[in-house]
Design a protein around this nucleic acid. Structure first.
Lengths: 111, 111
DNA sequence: GGCGTATATACCTTTTGACGTATATAGATG
DNA sequence: CATCTATATACGTCAAAAGGTATATACGCC
């Protein structure tokens, strides 16, 4: 299996993941949002799935894709040794990120 | 300039950066540590330099390379929206709102 | 100035990966 | 069962990127 960074090199795949970060989506949904040909979306999703970035569940003819955390964690772990170059107060940063995450979750509830 | 993720897709470049995370190093130093041909190291360093990942300073005939934080920060920022999928600091409210996702996470944990 | 060391670049070859088009599969619906 | 919708795959083409070899540049030292 290719390394997570190899997978993330492709802009359309990053765009797909960013959309899925908000919510589960069907292939057609992604196709519309990104203005990409359907086979292209399916192919990227296959690569993302095989690399563990996403997971599909079946809903009639549709496939609903959602994020899986493992490969992201690997990327995050690889990044760790470099954080000291820009994050002198790591715990302050964590608090900040937690706050941002909480806000986005609250927003989602309103739908 | 290519996106940071494009640069990081190459394994030798990630290896170079990981070595530089510890300390500043010369080209020959990297060449030895990684058992790569010298032109290969120089070429990767050029790409890393042009993408802002590293910076060189001159010491006689040698070039000493060191990490620059900016592109790493960009990667870290891109990763932010995905942290909620594995970040352990979930308070009660967030657990409630994320019920569906929590179920899939629990299933995966069992493996 | 000639030579050794350190690094960079040029050029060619090969591989990898993305894209487009066509087609296959699978379920839904009348 | 014929047809429509949703998604996946197969195949051919093309371009970007990596690797190897040779050579250039730059500095230090005798």
């Amino acid at each position: 299996m290719p390394a997570p960074f190899t997978i993330l090199a492709e802009p359309s795949r990053r765009a797909i993941l960013t959309l899925l970060a908000t919510s589960e989506r069907s292939v057609g949904d992604l196709e519309q949002q990104l203005r990409l040909p359907q086979p292209s979306v399916s192919k990227h999703l296959r690569i993302l799935r095989e690399a563990g970035f996403v997971q599909a569940r079946v809903d009639a003819q549709r496939r609903l894709y959602r994020i899986r955390p493992e490969p992201f964690m690997q990327v995050d772990a690889w990044l760790a040794p470099f954080r000291r170059f820009w994050a002198p107060h790591l715990d302050a940063l964590e608090r900040h990120l937690d706050r941002v995450e909480s806000q986005s979750r609250r927003r989602r509830k309103q739908r």
